[in-house]
């Protein structure tokens, strides 16, 4: 199975950490009528340099090429590349709060165990689960969790890195 679904593309962008950088990039993608699935921004080991990881629906390679060409022109952008779906490692973090009473708890914990998810908060009627993994794994877990009464769900969006040097 692919690390990331083939209907998505991951664009990795190194930018100067300046005001409005995220807005500049998201507005640019929006202008091309392209939908952003997830966007993450984080500090890197280089001071003043931020990494933005953008996941977009991969509909038309020409539009993707346009987006990259436009992002590359932005003054704040140092480097852009479209990551290879198979040659990269992708991770996402999920936090999920679910209503669960004593009776249903053990079956839920069983499922969590299979996915190597962690329980990070527990109360009489609810618990919070933390899961890290490839986006497809998170999707699979979410699918099973839909049997339960979910209270809150947050996913961080995808971050990724190419293998090797």
């Amino acid at each position: 199975m692919d690390m990331i679904q083939n209907t998505r593309k991951v664009i990795s962008i190194l930018v100067d950490n300046k005001p409005n950088t995220l807005a500049r990039i998201s507005s640019l993608v929006g202008r091309r009528n392209y939908n952003i699935e997830t966007i993450t921004a984080s500090e890197t080991h280089m001071p003043g340099v931020t990494l933005i990881t953008l996941v977009v629906t991969d509909s038309d390679p020409d539009i993707l090429e346009q987006i990259v060409a436009h992002i590359e022109k932005l003054e704040v952008v140092r480097e852009v590349h479209v990551m290879d779906n198979n040659g990269g490692l992708y991770r996402e973090l999920l936090l999920l709060k679910v209503m669960v009473d004593k009776k249903a708890r053990s079956s839920l914990l069983e499922t969590a165990e299979v996915f190597r998810a962690r329980i990070i908060d527990l109360s009489r009627s609810s618990l919070i689960i933390e899961l890290t993994g490839e986006p497809a794994k998170i999707d699979g877990f979410m699918d099973l969790m839909s049997d339960y009464e979910l209270v809150e769900v947050c996913r961080t969006g995808v971050t990724g890195m190419s293998r090797g040097l």
Partner: peptide
């Protein structure tokens, strides 16, 4: 105004 002119300026 920087927000308003973002898509119509080079920077």
């Amino acid at each position: 105004i920087t927000g308003i002119t973002m898509p119509i300026t080079k920077h």
